[in-house]
């Protein structure tokens, strides 16, 4: 029982990492809180589903196309909406929220609900870890989660574009004066965030069906992880994901599944009392928050 909880809690935590990375990436770099994130997540999954089932492409190709198109959608969203309201927090929140809402409700209206809307698992086997039986897809989730977090770290620390990302994250004006095209970098950051969301969706959703309602819970989970971890910090995301992830798994196992939704909220309230800047937050962030 306990071993089971520990293993599945680990998987659940990695799922949270995957879900939150994209949101965190976008916010950390361009300061845009993408409230359409949940919708982008579902968009990625549905695109993949369409390419695979309706168009009949090979699965790998379908995945790649879905990720690329989602990334482009993110870039377009920045170019045509966010660019015009950059810096006005109120407008950014409302516009992205509006986009997310419109997309999700549109999917619902178009009838993307039901069991047939599910993505196939990558390899349909399961293996044993100790006494715990775990399916291959969950192993994939863990591997891909680690790879994506690692890639993000490598990308932002060791590539030219990544360093630019960090440049504008720290001070947009200075970055601007150093010849970094901050609008382009911000557009890339939204686009990257969208791609991350699509990848997360395609890896995670084979575990169940593509449920449009999940768009909302994904957004909430991403928000909770980022508030607890400290927005913009990858280390914080990982730590917060594990806190909340294990919290949720233990709640399901030892209490009741209905209370799972409460775990993120309690985590947020607790972190506000203990360390208002978030687990990995710095002074700059504290000033933004309170």
């Amino acid at each position: 029982m306990l071993a089971n909880t520990l293993v599945y809690g680990f998987v659940n935590s990695v799922i949270l990492v995957l879900v939150a990375l994209g949101f965190n990436l976008t916010f950390g770099i361009s300061g845009v809180a993408n409230f359409a994130y949940g919708a982008v997540y579902i968009l990625g999954a549905l695109l993949c589903w369409t390419f695979f089932n309706s168009v009949g492409l090979p699965y790998v190709l379908a995945i790649m196309l879905a990720v690329i198109i989602t990334a482009i959608a993110g870039a377009l969203m920045y170019r045509f909406v966010l660019l015009r309201i950059r810096g006005m927090v109120l407008s950014e929140v409302i516009a992205t929220f509006g986009i997310g809402l419109a997309l999700l409700e549109l999917f619902k209206y178009l009838g993307f609900i039901g069991f047939e809307y599910s993505l196939p698992v990558f390899i349909d086997t399961s293996i044993d870890i100790g006494q715990v039986v775990i399916d291959m897809q969950r192993i994939f989730i863990v591997i891909i989660g680690i790879v994506m977090a690692g890639f993000l770290w490598f990308f932002t620390h060791h590539t030219r574009t990544g360093l630019r990302f960090r440049g504008i994250a720290q001070d947009e004006r200075t970055a601007l004066s150093l010849g970094i095209n901050t609008d382009r970098v911000a557009m890339l950051s939204v686009s990257f965030g969208a791609a991350y969301a699509a990848i997360a969706a395609i890896v995670i959703l084979p575990l169940g069906t593509i449920n449009v309602e999940q768009g909302y819970s994904v957004l909430i989970n991403a928000l909770a992880v980022c508030i607890v971890g400290g927005l913009g910090s990858t280390g914080g995301v990982v730590l917060a994901s594990f806190l909340i992830g294990y919290g949720q798994t233990f709640t399901v196992t030892y209490l009741e599944s209905h209370w799972v939704m409460l775990v993120p909220l309690i985590a947020i309230l607790a972190i506000l009392v203990v360390k208002p800047s978030g687990l990995y937050g710095e002074q700059k962030e504290l000033e933004e928050r309170i």
């Binding site: 927090v89 909430i220 209905h258 939704m261 993120p264 309230l269 009392v273």
Partner: peptide
């Protein structure tokens, strides 16, 4: 009140979460 110290989007995030949580409760 517990989240009143939060500014800007941080406050928004929490207000988005709370009613959805209450439904679950």
């Amino acid at each position: 009140v517990p989240v009143l110290r939060l500014r800007g989007i941080y406050f928004s995030m929490v207000t988005l979460i709370i009613p959805l949580m209450l439904v679950r409760i």
